[in-house]
Design a protein around this nucleic acid. Structure first.
Length: 561
RNA sequence: GCGCCGCUAGCUCAGCUGGAUAGAGCAACGCCCUUCUAAGGCGUGGGUCAGGGGUUCGAAUCCCUUGCGGCGUGCCA
């Protein structure tokens, strides 16, 4: 809708503003009484040699005849624009009833990599934020019209894996997770903790883990088979968590299969004079001119450091998907790593280097401080989801004493996930956040369940409707107009969210939209109104829009709650 | 040391490319279910936008600076 307004304003103002200028300058007044849009006239004061308010008055006169505008006012140097309600309704309502409302078009092929866990311990709260952001980003980009591929790299080898393997070997007596009724990835994680405890007593324990890694690399059959067994447990546990959380990948990569690759790329770069060999034999990239120092790629003993694997993986993903954009959803602690990765690929002249983008998100902390696995302060992903679902169950049973237990379970899980995902998404993506588990399991106020509840209320009205909806414009009141305008904002918010690659914008919009709906719900009876047909259309438009938004956030809706 | 990021109500956060009186939720207090779902709505109180300079018609927003906090700066992954 803003676009249409800009087009109209541009007709009369093309000598002073380009379309881009207007897009930047047009704003929404602080409250409804001041109009729907405003044009600040301060910047024109100099060229006109008139006060901003006189200019605003002139402009008000100039636009008076436009039927789209119900009223124009010059206030304090602003031209305040009041839109004609019927015109707005015509612009918005039909569109917002379409199941593809706001959907975009694009030819871009995009890879989104996220989650990427180590296989030595179960997923925790940090992974949940990562997955919430990754899944939602993939959905948002796809809705924007891009072809999106979701990938995950499993860090399934290395000394950290050997640590849990070693303590399993030493302390488990061959026990298996199913014998103890423990989820298999938790079982693996327990031995990682056990390793840390043992390492405090036995000063050689860290060395023993390194020795085990050497055996693994040498292909020692016993070690390899232990590694396979423990990874299998880790993977089957992860799989269960992914299912519970509602995420999945189009392609999974495994560090163990690619960690030796990439050396050729580096040696080729050396030959082409892009990298240099230091006197100690290490092959390095000189990034001094970019302020990134010197980065070692191949150690003096000829083995490669971690980033070489990522260089190879970037190449491999381009082979697999020939992408235009490759997005890495990884915490902000790895900003340097991804800056270097992109720069090195650019130095190598890789065609896919420019499409690389690090979607850097902030760390999750607890009110007591950082989570530390060694101190047992991590919030486990499965536990959080299940405990929150249990609390939701209590709330459901308060309202529906004898509901079928399968239905209770289903709703409780949906509410739990909505609470957790929304909580993790609403803070600006790039910022660190404090996650208070007690607040995440709240069901009132600015929460996921509030969004679900709003959706369910709209669904309930539509179920009870006994007439057809009517999209003919009517003289809508203030709460109706507020809701309509919020619905109209969706395409713009989606666009910004894609542009800036921040799902948090969409999450905040969802709350804003629901607030407008609940206000409307309270103020405007639908079924008994003389405008029931129109109000039904408005409710349906809201339900459709919030349904799309929630889907983009990876949140499943409930028809009843 | 150097680099990047953050600091907004008691708490958790919006405020997006400089605009009008800085907004929500929670917590506290009060009101609203014979009316479409009260997991809701409405109201009251609560602010030196970390401090100090600057830029300009206008700054929470841009620049400089100080303070506090986080992260990075591995031949770790």
């Amino acid at each position: 809708m803003k676009n249409e307004i800009i087009q109209i304003l541009h007709k009369e103002l093309s000598e002073f503003f380009t379309l881009e200028d207007l897009t930047r300058v047009i704003e929404t007044p602080p409250n409804d009484e001041m109009g729907d849009f405003a044009l600040p006239c301060f910047s024109l004061a100099k060229q006109f040699r008139k006060s901003p308010n006189l200019i605003a008055q002139d402009l008000a006169e100039r636009f008076k005849s436009y039927p789209e505008f119900a009223n124009l006012q010059a206030v304090g140097g602003y031209l305040n624009i009041f839109l004609e309600a019927e015109w707005v309704i015509n612009q918005v309502l039909e569109q917002a009833l379409q199941s593809d409302y706001g959907r975009g078009h694009s030819r871009t092929q995009t890879v989104v990599e996220y989650c990427s866990p180590n296989t030595n311990k179960p997923l925790h709260l940090g992974h949940l934020r990562n997955m919430a952001i990754g899944e939602s980003t993939a959905r948002i980009l796809a809705y924007g019209g891009q072809e999106v591929f979701k990938t995950c790299i499993f860090n399934d080898r290395g000394v950290h894996i050997c640590k849990s393997m070693l303590s399993y070997q030493d302390f488990a007596n061959g026990q298996r997770p199913e014998e103890l009724g423990i989820k298999s990835d938790h079982f693996v994680g327990d031995y990682y903790v056990k390793f840390a405890q043992q390492a405090k007593i036995d000063t050689n324990y860290e060395d023993k883990a390194l020795q085990m890694l050497e055996k693994w690399e040498a292909g020692n059959p016993q070690v390899v088979s232990l590694w396979q067994q423990m990874n299998e447990w880790a993977f089957s546990g992860f799989k269960e968590t992914f299912r519970l959380f509602g995420t999945s990948f189009d392609k999974e990569y495994y560090e163990s299969k690619i960690f030796k690759n990439g050396k050729e790329i580096i040696l080729d770069g050396l030959e082409r004079g892009i990298f240099t060999k230091r006197e100690d034999g290490a092959i390095v990239a000189d990034l001094e001119e970019y302020g990134l120092g010197e980065k070692v790629l191949l150690r003096s003993n000829g083995t490669s450091v971690y980033i070489v694997q990522d260089i190879y993986l970037a190449y491999l993903k381009n082979q697999d998907f020939s992408y235009d954009k490759s997005i890495y959803v990884v915490g902000n602690e790895q900003e340097y790593h991804f800056t270097v990765l992109k720069r090195i690929l650019q130095m190598l002249g890789a065609s896919y280097a420019d499409g690389i983008q690090h979607l850097s998100y902030g760390m999750v902390e607890l009110p007591e401080g950082k989570m530390k696995s060694r101190e047992g302060t991590v919030v486990d992903a499965d536990d959080l989801i299940i405990n929150t679902a249990d609390l939701a169950k209590d709330e459901i049973l308060k309202r529906y004493e004898d509901m079928d237990s399968a239905e209770v379970e289903k709703r409780a899980l949906a509410i739990s996930l909505a609470a957790i995902k929304y909580q993790l998404l609403k803070t600006e993506t790039s910022k660190n956040m404090i996650f208070n588990p007690k607040e995440a399991i709240r069901f009132e106020g600015d929460t996921g369940p509030y969004l679900l509840y709003s959706y369910a209320r709209a669904s309930s009205i539509l179920r009870k409707a006994n007439r057809e909806m009517d999209t003919q414009p009517w003289s809508a009141n203030q709460s109706e107009m507020r809701l309509i305008k919020k619905i109209a904002n969706f395409p713009q918010v989606l666009h910004d969210s894609i542009q800036k690659l921040v799902p948090s914008m969409l999450a905040n919009y969802a709350y804003d939209l629901c607030q407008s709906f609940n206000h409307f719900f309270h103020e405007c009876p639908v079924l008994k109104s003389q405008f029931s047909g129109q109000r039904l259309a408005l409710v349906a438009a809201f339900r459709n829009t919030i349904g799309i938004v929630l889907d983009l956030l990876g949140i499943q809706t409930l028809e009843e709650m």
